[in-house]
Design a protein around this nucleic acid. Sequence first.
DNA 1: GGGCACTCTAAGCGCTCGCTCACCTTCGGC
DNA 2: GCCGAAGGTGAGCGAGCGCTTAGAGTGCCC
Lengths: 208, 208
Amino acid sequence: MSTAEETAGGEPQPWGEVSPDAARRLLVAAVEAFAERGYHATTTRDIAGRAGMSPAALYIHYKTKEELLHRISRIGHEKALDVLRTAADSEGTPADRLAEAVRSFVRWHAGQHTVARVVQYELDALGPDARAEIVALRRQNDAEVRRIIQDGVAAGDFDVPDVKGTTVAVLSLCIDVARWFNVNGPRTPDEVGALYADLVLRMVRATK
Amino acid sequence: MSTAEETAGGEPQPWGEVSPDAARRLLVAAVEAFAERGYHATTTRDIAGRAGMSPAALYIHYKTKEELLHRISRIGHEKALDVLRTAADSEGTPADRLAEAVRSFVRWHAGQHTVARVVQYELDALGPDARAEIVALRRQNDAEVRRIIQDGVAAGDFDVPDVKGTTVAVLSLCIDVARWFNVNGPRTPDEVGALYADLVLRMVRATK
DNA sequence: GGGCACTCTAAGCGCTCGCTCACCTTCGGC
DNA sequence: GCCGAAGGTGAGCGAGCGCTTAGAGTGCCC
């Protein structure tokens, strides 16, 4: 975590680590465009245009259009993993930790739904090597959630017949928020996070 | 429902209503290609090639590439809606009906995950009119699930503080199956359906 | 058995894509 | 005040895209 790159509210702009400034503007523009139209429907001219630059400028900072997607995917996944790990490693009962994990993970997928959309749904546009790297990060997400659920089962706090399947379902529920969440909709990221945390505690039948 | 277009197992090929034969082959080819690579990354040459025809043949049966997507989306959504309605209208307690709805809806999204993928994730590639039509179908899905949950609450069988939010979550959980389900994975569509039905009954705290 | 509707192909048009290249500007170091 | 590095631009290349067109093969009706 770096300095003051997150605000309390919804839309941080967590690209503080990307420099120089022009490279960051291009990255932010690419996130917007990819989220709106999808990777393949986005042109390099569109990205450069949104960043206020000529089409050729993109290639000073990135080798290819795919490299942009790769960078976005890695940074995005690392942020999400960070959020999840913080919750998983926190103090409290397994139920507290699971609720906090779901709450913050969902909040991220709702508040940062543009990034999340790109990260979760444009994976197939990456080449084999880049995809393998991202898939590995994704498995770490899975491991964090499974760890919490296993802790709960071991402590006798949860009633979960199928830990692996339930882990997949919990993550699935959270990730799909990026697909349907709408900024102009009736719910804030915080509200969705609270609702989903409750639902997940029901799924594992948390008793304390 | 028409005659014998579904088998008991996993992969029906529910395109019996599409004719002539060449048009159906093109549609099936398009579903495969869109599911694998996405709409924008799929070329009309690829679709025609998979159907064993020349690139130009496509335009005898469909006006544009987008019309293919539109047709696939509508038929796919109608099938899914049909599955859901059958369960929602069945006999039994709200818990029975909800479990059956989730079980069959999930089974469809897993077994037909190529169609489901196209239907759920390529919506944005449609023009405004076609998209509006599909969105309307989607809202009917929502209404079916909400109806069951409301019935359960009214009967005192479910404990659900937020019916709208829970409805979204249940559908979200089911739909996301299309994203992660893998035919070569360890679970069959039936198994995932059973697991998810149980998880959803927990989410609504069904008491009978 | 001639005419016609239907289905399909080979060739290719016009366009836009990702990306490159030659050149221009700005700026810190000496 | 000159110089090289770094960051930018305008023009455009080669390729592949969605889609069209002219014409050939095939079967059905009269």
